[in-house]
């Protein structure tokens, strides 16, 4: 059952990143993906009876993702300061 939930979270997060036009929403999508992965590692630890290791890994992931989310929010805020909007469609000056 939990595998379905992890899959669902992954799909929701990926969909959110692909479809959205708001920078904040893209970051929220990434947070959903990271939650799915945290859950996966905890579930794996529970299945193999290594909950202690799994918890250590999950805590590290959570700490790191806070830093990434804060950085991303800071960058989004600066983009807002420069353009007055959070729309990703403005980010088309550079073509990949």
């Amino acid at each position: 059952m939990i595998a379905f939930l992890i899959l669902l979270l992954l799909i929701c997060g990926a969909y959110c990143i692909v479809v959205t036009r708001s920078m904040i929403r893209a970051i929220i999508g990434i947070e959903l993906l990271i939650k799915a992965v945290t859950l996966l590692i905890i579930a794996a630890g529970n299945m193999t009876g290594r909950t202690a290791t799994a918890q250590s890994l999950a805590i590290t992931i959570i700490i790191i993702e806070v830093v990434v989310a804060a950085t991303a929010a800071g960058i989004a805020l600066w983009v807002f300061k420069r353009t007055g909007t959070l729309d990703v469609r403005n980010l088309r000056n550079l073509k990949g």
């Binding site: 947070e31 945290t38 905890i42 630890g45 909950t51 799994a54 700490i63 804060a70």
Partner: peptide
């Protein structure tokens, strides 16, 4: 419920609390 209380506390306080505050 998956027997990982410490990670649960972190998830609750940091992800549900801190990240929401940031957003």
């Amino acid at each position: 419920r998956l027997e990982s209380p410490l990670a649960a506390v972190f998830e609750l306080s940091v992800c549900a609390g801190l990240i929401t505050a940031v957003f």
